[in-house]
């Protein structure tokens, strides 16, 4: 038995004729923080969206916890224990921070079609939501609508929404996109804290974030895996440097 929680086998995806993924073999071990990097147009976001069920792969398999989940719909993946965040902040913008997190907590507790009880009378849901809000330092803003939060806090809400269903594997799509230095710094701390003991896959442009968070890195180039390794191995690999400088790979 391998210890990998997520695997892709020879994954292909093309977008109206344009080949974006050309046989990706990715392996994510249980408990690790895994980063996917690569130059622009390498297919990172597409790979991310195929794994998380937004697109179905044209060929190949996505294996999650030993089960072939290729083409599974997002809600099914979520129930199997996969969570994701979005690059462009995608919370419930008219709902308060509390209501946002509660949405995930309800799903985690399997309360998905209950229409016979008032949600605010569900004591354990409220308690659990408060715990989550406290953990991400948003308890003072719990009654603030998501779109009225500061950018940094809104991003924190975005990431914690992905964590709110308590997934075994969390997929983060550029969690620090558009943040200032300071905000990035505290976001990295938050992510490290939240994903303690969990498996995380992160797609990120910011190399500082990648190298401070990741245990292992997969480099994607032209829709294929170029290299896999620990951060300092990757840092020193000639192929990776070439790919980023643009005269490798052709």
């Amino acid at each position: 038995m391998s210890t990998s929680i997520l695997e892709t086998k020879d994954l292909f995806y093309d977008y109206s004729g344009l080949q974006v993924l050309t046989g990706v073999n990715l392996q994510v071990e249980k408990g690790e923080r895994h980063a996917i990097i690569g130059p622009n147009g390498a297919g990172k976001t597409t790979l991310f969206n195929v794994i998380t069920g937004l697109y179905a792969p044209c060929r190949g398999k996505v294996i999650f916890k030993g089960q072939n989940v290729s083409g599974f719909k997002p809600h099914k993946l979520s129930r199997l224990g996969m969570g994701r965040s979005f690059q462009i902040t995608s919370t419930f913008h008219n709902l308060t921070a509390f209501e946002n997190i509660r949405m995930g907590v309800l799903s985690r507790m399997g309360i998905r079609f209950n229409m016979f009880q008032r949600v605010d009378k569900l004591k354990d849901v409220t308690r659990e939501t408060d715990v989550v809000l406290r953990r991400i330092n948003l308890h003072r803003e719990s009654a603030v609508p998501a779109n009225a939060l500061s950018y940094g806090k809104h991003r924190a809400l975005e990431v914690s929404l992905a964590m709110s269903t308590n997934p075994d594997l969390v997929m983060l799509d550029e969690p620090t996109a558009g943040m200032s230095r300071d905000e990035t710094h505290s976001a990295v701390d938050l992510i490290r804290r939240l994903t303690e003991g969990k498996t995380m896959v992160i797609v990120e442009h910011d190399m500082d974030v990648v190298f401070s968070l990741a245990d292992r890195i997969t480099v994607l180039h032209h829709g294929k895996v170029l290299a896999v390794g620990a951060p300092n191995e990757i840092k020193n690999m000639q192929e990776v440097k070439d790919a980023y400088l643009g005269h490798g790979g052709v």
Partner: peptide, 25 residues
């Protein structure tokens, strides 16, 4: 005011996210 009513409001705001939280939209 029920959980399902909340999910419906969530669908109004962001149905893709509701899907990703494990609900059948």
């Amino acid at each position: 005011k029920t959980p399902l009513g909340q999910v419906v409001v969530g669908i109004r705001d962001n149905s893709l996210r509701v899907d990703y939280l494990g609900y059948r939209v």
